[in-house]
Design a protein around this nucleic acid. Structure first.
Lengths: 225, 225
DNA sequence: CCTATCGAGTGGTCTGGGTCACATGCAGTC
DNA sequence: GACTGCATGTGACCCAGACCACTCGATAGG
């Protein structure tokens, strides 16, 4: 298993070598191919996962069948914590957006682990608190921003986490269809498409299949706020 | 200080008498009158608060001055955890909705406290995880539900936490103006007013100043989903 | 190579709900 | 009691964005 990526997870960044080795022992590895589902909303389960490689989407389905995405997670990010500490069924469906591999840890192992290591426990708290803060931000955006603004913000967030800067701009291979991007910002596919087309026509970015090249980051930033 | 209410907070429910007494020693008490602000979004601060009596609103202001409310909190509920674990300025403004009293604890004291008590740490985690889950639910509602639906859901939530069942229905003294209720569900005051008027005309509830009497809970529930 | 399928791109229509503009109904306070 | 604000009702108007109906490529099976 890729020890480095586990260490890179904010949660475990403070581990010394001994601890990292011990941790690796109790973790197991899983792989999924694009489109496969790790678990469904409503399933029971109490494993914590860390993305080693690839990308996943966390999604929910409303009673009438429409979907929305809570987050896109990449290497080093974890999920599944909700069912750990707020006992209950899984609150979202996790689907691989690209071929993906995970490390996972059972609730039990994690708790045993946490006991002697207050630093890690604090890290976990920080992680979840950060997520909560972000969820609150998304709420505010849904109320205050229009669709183009939310699209701009989503692109900048993806660029931050998955972007590679080149001389012609920031290349962001988000691996999402426009449909998925629309679900992420809470809008229809058509409206998102039009927003993207508008940005492209202004020369702020270039559209490529499942990726974009952002050429004018500051313009997008201004549009996002 | 009101020891019972502190104990009643989910966070500290598992404390034995010795621990509760020790805790009380490091907590201090604050009072606010309706409309007064405890702290503003952007302030620095690292105290954790627990509402002893009364109600507060957690709100944010967008760049163009409009407001939205993240939550209404009553006795036994805590806030301020975000700035504790995700270091940074306060992410919301806290305002008293009624005359309110709080117990508070400094970051330092809390951490010292947590160290020897993994149970409490786990409780804290559970608390924040629950909040995160709720924030995600709100997100989904903003995307999928219409305003009347969100109003219905908000009323049911308030009824759950502040309602008193009488023979003519559930009396909910939410203490909110319709303006505040509107900010809570992310809609305009006028639209919320019309939704309420509609519910009232159907006989589902009765409107009273700063409170409602819900007469047909199940109708509202159906409208909320 | 020929279809099916799926993603992307675009115009046209319709509506939920925001904004504006009022009216009414109250507390306080002078 | 008259005057000033704040909270609450309600209609008229308008627009962002959902929904619908297509077209056009690209990829994939047969």
């Amino acid at each position: 298993m890729d020890n480095d990526v586990v260490r890179q997870a904010p949660l475990f960044s403070a581990l010394d070598d001994e601890a990292a080795t011990a941790l690796r022992g109790s973790m197991s590895e899983t792989r999924l191919r694009r489109g496969e589902v790790l678990f469904h909303e409503g399933d029971s389960g109490d494993r914590l996962y860390i993305v080693l490689d690839g990308k996943v989407k966390l999604g929910r389905t409303s009673s009438d069948g429409r979907e929305n995405l809570l987050a896109i997670l990449g290497p080093g990010q974890m999920f599944g914590e909700l069912s750990l500490f707020d006992p209950g069924p899984r609150s979202a469906t996790v689907t691989a957006v690209t071929d993906t591999s995970f490390a996972s840890l059972s609730h039990e192992d994690l708790l045993r682990w946490l006991d002697g290591r207050p630093t890690v426990a604090r890290g976990l708290l920080a992680q979840i608190a950060g997520r909560l803060r972000k969820a609150n931000d998304v709420n505010a955006d849904l109320v205050f921003s229009d669709v183009p603004g939310r699209v701009a913000k989503a692109l900048l967030d993806l660029a931050d986490r998955f972007g590679r800067t080149a001389d012609d701009g920031v290349h962001v291979h988000h691996d999402l269809t426009q449909e998925e991007l629309a679900q992420l910002v809470g809008a229809s596919r058509e409206t998102v498409n039009k927003a993207l087309a508008d940005f492209a026509s202004r020369g702020w970015l270039r559209l490529e299949p499942r990726s974009v090249v952002i050429m004018e980051v500051d313009r997008l930033q201004r549009r996002a706020r």
